[in-house]
Write a protein that binds this DNA or RNA. Structure first.
Lengths: 221, 221
DNA sequence: TAGATTGTTAATCGATTAACAATC
DNA sequence: TAGATTGTTAATCGATTAACAATC
């Protein structure tokens, strides 16, 4: 029997975006020996109570107890399991400029099951160095290394103009999932998944909201 | 007369996320003197044609011409205007570690109308230095500087454990919009907008998709 | 018990997609 | 003209929220 979700509640992208929020909250504020309820989380996150309840129901192994809620420690483990934080995924990163080296250095990814093994770049002054104890190899070795180590995840932090070419090399090396930080639309074969980390889009949402606020302020009242 | 949208097509978060994608595509591939059609963009981005058409109709000042499409140069300007890329928003950043300095150094934000003026940190070895020509001041000056310069946007790249406190200081300094890179839920008054740059969530979506791929591969056909 | 909370079914809401007339 | 594309109204789809019985 496979571990499919019991109910028909879909594993939507939205759900996958909310779960890490719950997890942060639980880890920071919940007494792991105690219980926590959906209304409590909903209130803290300013989300609808039913939504949180459904989300928790979808991932909780043991369910909650009426009147008391969910065992916090178990719930944390359940969410982590659901999110796959206990399976390690190995990744490589192409582009070791500011952003690339920030990602290479970031300790927090371990927690999410992401292990960035090494970086690739084409600049001679970077190749051969190491960042946060991880080697930087020449970009020409990218395809080969991915193949040999059977890496499935590639992270792209090269300038926009190189991104497609780097992406093609990753795909040629057997990469199945690409996390793209370059502000371009990448074309990949159907069997490859792309996740765009769209900072411009984030920024736009923020500045639009801000513009509204400022307008209201000007209008008075 | 205010520049509200003509139609009732809502300015959804989704729309705001798609527009930068169109913009990238247009800038990279469109002949600015020529014309571009919704079906063409839709095809390149693998989106529904009607959706693109509606999106373009919502932002285009002059509309498109049946059979020919939209004037590419004008469309680029319209999208940029709609997204507010021509209004400069000044921002400060708290936390000048790897990620913070990557953001401080990133040239691309200009294009989006974001101007990061300076950084703040509490580490003595960082305070007084400058990153990409931008000063790093002591975090204790954050509130004061925001007030004096009437900064509206604060970017948080401090460790999770400091994020709430830094956020509070920003709010006290009159910040109205917070771009939060720390993996915690921040509590702010109603008049402040938060945009969480949720890398963990992105990563989860990616690794879930990857897991599906790998499962299918194992099952064979 | 009374009351809080869970889990689930039904109603609502909003975004996407389909259908189609208008236009160049 | 014929055909591609626009703009818009209607239908569909999916996610969120409301309502409510079950439970401790």
């Amino acid at each position: 029997m496979s571990n499919k979700t019991k109910s028909s509640y879909a594993i939507s992208k939205q759900l996958l975006n909310r779960l890490p929020l719950y997890l942060n909250y639980l880890k920071d504020f919940a007494d792991r020996e105690g219980y926590i309820s959906a209304p409590l989380i909903a209130n803290a996150m300013k989300l609808n109570e039913v939504q949180v309840r459904k989300d928790l129901a979808a991932v909780s192994s043991s369910g909650g107890k009426p009147k008391t809620g969910f065992a916090a420690g178990q719930l944390i483990r359940d969410i982590e399991k659901f999110l796959g934080y206990d399976n390690v995924n190995e990744a490589v990163i192409a582009g070791t400029g500011h952003l690339g080296s920030a990602l290479l250095s970031y300790k927090g990814f371990d927690e999410y099951g992401l292990k960035i093994l090494m970086g690739f770049d084409l600049k001679d002054e970077l190749v051969g160095t190491s960042i946060a104890g991880k080697q930087v190899l020449h970009i020409d070795k990218l395809e080969d290394v991915c193949k040999r180590l059977k890496i499935h995840i590639g992270i792209i932090t090269v300038p926009a103009s190189f991104a497609q070419e780097v992406c093609d090399r990753m795909v040629a090396g057997g990469i199945l999932a690409v996390w793209n930080f370059a502000p371009v639309h990448l074309t990949v074969p159907d069997h490859v998944v792309i996740q765009n980390e769209n900072m411009a889009a984030s920024l736009v949402v923020l500045s639009k909201h801000l513009a509204e606020k400022l307008e209201k302020k000007e209008e008075g009242i």
